[in-house]
Nucleic acid binder design. Structure first.
Length: 507
RNA sequence: CGGGGCAUAGCGCAGUCUGGCUAGCGCGUCUGCUUUGGGAGCAGAAGGUCCUCAGUUCGAAUCUGAGUGCCCCGACCA
């Protein structure tokens, strides 16, 4: 007797234990695993495939907006790092520092660090300082500007509470660093890249975002202004999915990026920086996935279609495989998004049900079963990942091939719409502190249930507000750019306010 | 950095209190056979410095001491 099949592929469900569900989705989809180094993860091929797709699409967007790629060192001399006071304050506590350059026997069979460095090296938590130092050498005249460079790199921030993809000690990202002759141009760049991110999140990740400006307390250390995109996860918490910083002249003064303008006067350049990281994969998981595992938007899925040959014995096998391989080859020529349909034929010798569930847990958008019966009727049996695992239907083979790209677009759209509906359902105007507190207080404080959401409330920049927010474990996510001007009173201090701010618990 | 807990097979655990046969169990892994349109069954196999070091003892996974690592709660997290 087969044992009772679990109702969902992932246990626990989102409702039962959201953080644990997240970890099980990552495991079930074979995206990544924890490594022997605390806080550092091994990204496995399926997870890496998603990141590669993100990189490809973003990289093209950066090139289309006039940027080029380059690479700067992993190590930053401590003295560079010290130059921008705010920057130091923000990052000092999470820096890994290299102090030695050699190992030697410790006399007990092991090794110990030897050869102390004259100046310690900080493993980059971000590269403003080292890139600023380099730009200072490159820039002499207004004719050398703008500099529009991006780099793909790893960075290290020694986090106390790591979580796979969402907060890891080492993570991968891209960081754009630009220098401009005028403030206006730098501001325009900051906004332009925010739009690139928002467009990517919505059209490629199928994740609706709120574009906004950070409050002073949440700003990047050393920035004049930080813009961000914020997304709603299924547990109603917020996740910052991308940031774009207007750095003013803070870093150019710290690194001495000066140029001679057209009037022959020395000026400091205006700089920006902007980045997104492997954290986006965490966002992808928490926005779309369900209790059966990962759900991938087709535009980022490493494979769009998995073909599952079904046969009983060797005599059936060759016929089915021939049919399936033929179908795979035809599909591989079908254009989709910015390339072709990616197809996997899974003929591994493992039990059928187990195999199908593996692909469900990995979030492959389309599963196609082909057995002797289907071949007889020249049709295929199709399951969509955005629908239930049992909702499958027979489709004539040629129709499937002709409509596969459109079907993937449908899935992409349905995922976006579902996420947009979720976001709408958790946006909530709040007009009093009492209401605010109630909104963000779980019924069960020991094991908080899914609660809260995105509270839109009037706000004033005041230390008392920070105090209250900390108590509730809520943060000001952003001042939405699109939010209407609306006179009101700060719900914390009673001070006048002309716009609502988004508040939420956050990752 | 403060408070608490844990350390035995890849993972989850029992055994420790009360020292004593060859250190077990579940899951997973591997192999074979039977199965396969929905998460299989049977048979077999591999896999352990019982965290480390020192001590007590005829004998230590078990008792004692020191060390190390990890987890949870706080602090911290642009």
């Amino acid at each position: 007797m087969a044992k009772q099949a679990a109702k969902t592929a992932i246990t626990p469900t989102r409702e039962e234990d959201y953080p644990e569900w997240y970890q099980q989705v990552v495991k079930g989809a074979d995206l990544a695993e924890n490594s022997p180094v605390r806080g550092c993860m091994v990204i496995k091929p399926w997870g890496w495939g998603i990141w590669e797709n993100m990189q490809r699409v973003l990289d093209r967007a950066f090139k289309e907006t006039g940027h080029v790629n380059a690479y700067f060192p992993l190590f930053i001399p401590l003295s560079f790092f010290e130059r921008e006071a705010q920057h130091v304050e923000g990052f000092a506590k999470e820096c890994a520092v290299v102090t030695h350059h050699r190992l030697e026997p410790d006399g007990e069979g092991g090794l110990k660090p030897a050869g102390p460095l004259e100046e310690p090296l900080v493993v980059r938590p971000t590269s403003e300082t080292i890139i600023g130092e380099t730009y200072a050498k490159w820039v002499q005249s207004y004719r050398d500007l703008p500099i529009l460079i991006n780099q793909w790199a790893n960075v290290v921030r020694w986090e106390m509470r790591p979580r796979v993809f969402l907060r890891t000690a080492e993570f991968l990202w891209q960081e754009g660093h630009t220098a401009h002759a005028t403030k206006e141009e730098a501001l325009e760049e900051t906004m332009k890249m925010l739009d690139v991110y928002a467009d990517f999140a919505e059209n490629v990740m199928a994740v609706p975002v709120i574009k906004g400006e950070k409050t002073p307390a949440e700003r990047f250390p050393g920035a004049v202004n930080t813009l961000c995109i914020e997304a709603v996860m299924q547990d109603r918490k917020a996740l910052q999915a991308g940031t774009s910083h207007f750095l003013g002249q803070n870093f150019s003064k710290a690194s001495n990026i000066q140029f001679l303008n057209a009037e022959g006067k020395q000026e400091f350049a205006w700089t920006t920086s902007w980045g997104v990281s492997t954290r986006l994969i965490g966002a992808l998981i928490m926005v779309h996935s369900d209790d059966d595992g990962l759900v991938l938007p087709p535009r980022l899925a490493p494979k769009h279609v998995v073909l599952l040959p079904i046969y009983r014995d060797a005599s059936e096998r060759s016929g089915v495989l021939e049919y399936v391989n033929d179908l795979a080859n035809e599909l591989r020529h079908v254009p989709y998004f910015d390339g072709k349909i990616q197809v996997e034929v899974d003929d591994r010798d493992i039990r059928g049900g187990d195999k199908v569930w593996q692909h469900i847990k990995k979030g492959v958008p389309l599963r196609v079963e082909v057995g002797p019966r289907d071949i007889q009727s020249n049709s295929v049996f199709v399951g969509r990942r955005d629908q239930g695992p049992k909702e499958k239907k027979a489709v004539p083979r040629d129709e499937f091939v002709a409509t596969v790209a459109k079907t993937l677009d449908d899935i992409q759209t349905s995922l976006f719409n579902k996420a947009a509906a979720l976001r709408e359902s958790v946006m909530h105007p709040v007009d009093s502190l009492v209401e605010f507190e109630a909104y963000f207080t779980p019924k069960n404080p020991d094991k908080p249930e899914i609660h809260g959401g995105f509270a839109l409330a009037h706000w004033a920049d005041d230390p008392a507000v920070e105090e209250k927010l900390k108590e509730l474990k809520v943060t000001a996510r952003c001042i939405p750019l699109a939010g209407p001007e609306e006179p009101g009173k700060c719900i914390f201090t009673g001070k006048p306010s002309n716009k609502r701010v988004v508040f939420a618990k956050a990752y």
